[in-house]
Design a protein around this nucleic acid. Structure first.
Lengths: 196, 196
DNA sequence: CGGTGGACTGATCGAACGATAAGATAACTT
DNA sequence: AAGTTATCTTATCGTTCGATCAGTCCACCG
């Protein structure tokens, strides 16, 4: 399953060879067609598992923050999202792949996984805007600022390594990027107030 | 050539079929091997042309801003970058594709096109930080905030259409996103100062 | 201990891939 | 007008793809 994620993320769905997935998993290729009826089903199982891990990480983080004010909660959820994106850049690589083809797998992604995440994010942000705690922009633009600024450094990891010399898998780089994203998303309403 | 860009962006390099490129261009497949010796060379020609268009757009925009202060210049260059990314999402789709494989095409991309863009961006940003006109973060993080927050809404265009109902190719949506990116990147040093 | 079913592999299918070879057509040179 | 070159097509090569099938192996049950 982890092998499938890696191969689907490295090459696209079309470019991924089931023989390579099987080889990395240490089994033979027809075994994949035995457990999963087709390449599509294998893809859905792998991607669904990864989205499940994201939802698990976000909900457990949130459940540990009962009683914390909403602004701090959203900041910490964004930080958790950045960390997850750094540790699992395959997720955004796969989403990007499927957005290009714009086919039935895209429909499946949106219906089963992306839309709930979007709705939850927008609802949380809209509540803060109502309370006047953040600068208000239209929720769709906020959502794509987060999903763009957060994971891109890690999705383009090999480029980042070449360009900047930084290792995008190092903990201190991830933390620094999370700091930068949060600082830019949640600007203090007055200058010289340190970002959380 | 435009057909090659579209197909390479829709599928990855591996998934792109030269027969499909030829069909969209209205020619036969062996003709591509005649003009370009291989699929790799065709890819380099197409991607090089697209990067050339980006550099042309940025340099012409910049040359029309002689005498304008550096902060405003950078804001307008970022705005131009967002517009280009919206009109040509293929560029970032292809870069993302090649970052996953991390092969010789990635080396070619960085050496010939990405590094000059990165160096220029970082130099421009570092100058503003020296002058104290922007909140200073490490240049690599700034670079990936721009290349992430700017194009992602358009790279994930089909998802954006489904999730938000917005048309990411509409001029007013592009302009609104550029406003959002610039407002968040270049925060006013005092509150209630309208962003440029 | 004999048998039944799930797990797995080797062999192989038709289709599509990138690349090449050989030939036809158009254009330009002298 | 003859010849040479550049351009483009049809036919086809060897390879690799996802999927299928027949058969092997092992665990479990009565």
């Amino acid at each position: 399953m982890a092998a499938a994620l890696d191969v689907f993320a490295e090459h696209s769905f079309e470019g991924a060879a089931t023989r390579e997935i099987a080889a990395r998993a240490g089994v033979t290729q027809p075994l994949l067609n035995y457990h999963f009826s087709s390449k599509d089903e294998l893809w859905r199982a792998a991607v669904g598992g990864l989205f499940g891990a994201l939802n698990l990480a976000l909900t457990t983080r949130e459940s540990g923050l009962r009683g914390v004010d909403e602004l701090t909660t959203l900041k910490l959820l964004v930080r958790e999202f950045v960390h997850f994106s750094a540790r699992h850049p395959q997720l955004h690589r796969i989403i990007t792949s499927e957005c290009r083809a714009d086919g039935p797998r895209m429909d499946w992604l949106v219906d089963h996984h992306t839309r709930p995440l979007y709705e939850a994010t927008v609802a949380r942000y809209a509540r803060l805007v109502e309370q006047g705690q953040v600068r208000g922009i239209a929720p769709p633009h906020f959502y794509y600022l987060v999903t763009g600024a957060g994971p891109t450094m890690f999705v383009l990891g090999p480029e980042c390594r070449r360009l900047t010399g930084l290792d995008p898998t190092a903990d201190e780089v991830i933390e620094a990027h999370a700091d930068a994203v949060i600082a830019f998303l949640f600007q203090p309403s007055a200058p010289n107030v340190p970002a959380n």
